[in-house]
Write a protein that binds this DNA or RNA. Structure first.
Lengths: 341, 341
DNA sequence: CTGTTAGCGCTTTCAG
DNA sequence: CTGAAAGCGCTAACAG
């Protein structure tokens, strides 16, 4: 009894039929009689052949049932971000429904080339930290769907970040306010800092700049001036960066009485720290977030923020990919009035 | 100018060398002169050949650089669990270091067969909900590493759950205490309920039962009786199940003055609810958790719990897989005394 | 150091 | 409905 892996050919020989018949029994039920098919399948099970080798199928058919999810940053970081993980959740449930598999791909990887040949497509969540990936995706022969950013001629899922930011800022701001903004990835710096006159990055494509635009439009309408030294840049939305930035804001002078935050994580960190310092929210300081994560609902006072359904985004992205959608989709968002403004 | 994808053969023809030379230029630098190699590589770049097709390489070489991470449950659930996502974090960072890719695989999938042919191995985090997968993994020709449970003859990463539970219970319990236990997956039920006399599941393999054993050993030593109607079963460690169970416990009579929880998520939910009800923790009720998640450190009063480094587990699991380790590894844990006992 | 060639295991025309 | 045969694109002996 040798244990060399059985091949379709072996099986065909053993059962005394041709290889095509075995192949058809597994892949194209309509190509042979019900009876014959069941006969073959049961024989296969008996002799321990569990079906055509997938690696060979991938080469031959050119499809693998694997979808790559390209994250903006390292997997390590993304998977612990509540917004990203909710998105992954949406993607994975939609994929699982269709029997597709999920390959997680870091946005700071060198290249996309070592998977492009065998995955069935890419879902790209946020502009990957390594810009080169964007160029590679742009010319990839495999379908691509982007989320929270765009690539020319590729379908995408977005919300209107400018408008969302405008709305949340509008409801928070009043003439005479002293405002600070806690922004995400506005400039090219690995650490928390004020923006000052650093050149803004990815101004066209980035959701952060759309949000900034929205804040500024609201500010202008309300006759509120916001100078660049009151705008902070955070390299990512992790708690430690948020804490740093929150501290800087809270100890800056004059202390702002409205702080617009580009993520709930940042806003919550600021909120907690402010409360600890005995600052009354919203009387002494108003705070707004962005995203609408669960924790923001549980926290007291409840955070005023913009809700976007990351899970829904994930589902839509997966469906767009699997159904070869061409259009760019704009998903709705919702202002959630909490108790922090 | 046709756009048919270039193959290695085409390139060889165009450059006037043999296919082996092209292949070697990409895969085995030692097989040809530095000069020739660079010549070839730069020519390839110029004509737009980005290297050997990966699908073909997978078939030919039998390796893909893809590692499947089999989760205990659906990806959707796992990715939002802080313990699991920290584990994923560890795995992914170790894999990324070695240029390996991460395929997330749901533990409630039908079978492992549709990836076994092309992945390089499996990391299996917790006993998959679908038991069939365990049998398939047990006979898989590809390397397997299990975490938080065992398969005969396969390497594994574990902590001593019995001892950890014993220690945390020991430090919480005193003679005369009225104790409740909030357990995980103790019986076969999709909803929160008391264990009573339902048959326990997976008694041998499950970490939950090891923890239960540890609690019981401590209880016995301290002369504390814990009846099965004071032991709750939660199907998973999500907040909503936790909330349900917490409510049942807090409204049960007599109300226990010590509650041992098998996860921090459960313990925190209980803690919050108890505080809201005006119960003094730890005076009126002591609470212990398990895992040592970040949130448990941030919460006041700080939770008393067992810390295990899920990230480290992930790293070790990945290394065990990549280095073909054979042994079963036992990782250390650490009791963290908070203010809830 | 380079070229030839036999597969890796399968799918899919195309005849029968 | 079945069988024979041509590749999918590549790698690794092996011979030169």
């Amino acid at each position: 009894m040798k244990k060399t892996k059985l091949t379709l050919k072996d099986v065909a020989a053993q059962l005394g039929v041709s290889t095509a018949t075995i192949s058809n029994a597994f892949n194209r039920p309509d190509q042979l009689s019900q009876a014959k098919r069941e006969e073959i399948l049961s024989q296969c099970k008996k002799i321990g052949y569990s079906g055509p080798n997938k690696a060979a199928q991938i080469l031959r058919k050119g499809t693998s049932n694997i979808v790559a999810l390209v994250l903006a940053d390292s997997i390590a970081y993304m998977v612990s971000d509540p917004v990203a993980s909710t998105f992954i959740k949406g993607v994975s449930s939609a994929l699982q429904e269709q029997g597709k598999h999920l390959l997680l791909y870091a946005g700071d990887s060198k290249s996309i080339l070592d998977v492009v040949d065998f995955v069935d497509g890419f879902i790209c969540y946020g502009a990957p930290r390594n810009n080169k990936l964007i160029d590679e995706l742009a010319v990839s022969p495999k379908p691509v769907v982007t989320v929270d950013f765009d690539i020319d001629n590729k379908p995408s899922i977005n919300i209107d970040n400018e408008d969302a930011a405008y709305q949340v800022a509008s409801s928070a701001l009043n003439e005479g306010d002293s405002v600070a903004i806690l922004g995400l990835r506005l400039i090219d710096s690995p650490s928390t800092c004020r923006v000052y006159d650093s050149p803004l990055i990815g101004v066209e494509s980035s959701i952060s700049h759309r949000r900034l635009d929205g804040y500024m439009r609201a500010a202008k309408e309300k006759n509120v001036a916001i100078s660049k030294e009151r705008i902070w840049h955070l390299p990512e939305s992790g708690r430690s960066f948020a804490r740093q930035a929150a501290k800087e804001v809270l100890t800056s002078s004059p202390r702002p009485n409205v702080v617009l935050c580009m993520s709930d994580i940042i806003a919550l960190e600021l909120l907690h720290m402010a409360l600890e310092m005995g600052i009354n929210v919203p009387l002494d300081m108003k705070i707004t977030g962005f995203d609408g994560i669960e924790e923001a609902e549980r926290t007291r006072p409840r955070l005023t923020t913009v809700c976007q359904s990351s899970a829904e985004k994930g589902v839509q992205a997966a469906q767009a990919l699997l159904n070869d959608m061409e259009e760019k989709t704009m998903l709705p968002f919702e202002l959630r009035e909490g108790e922090t403004i």
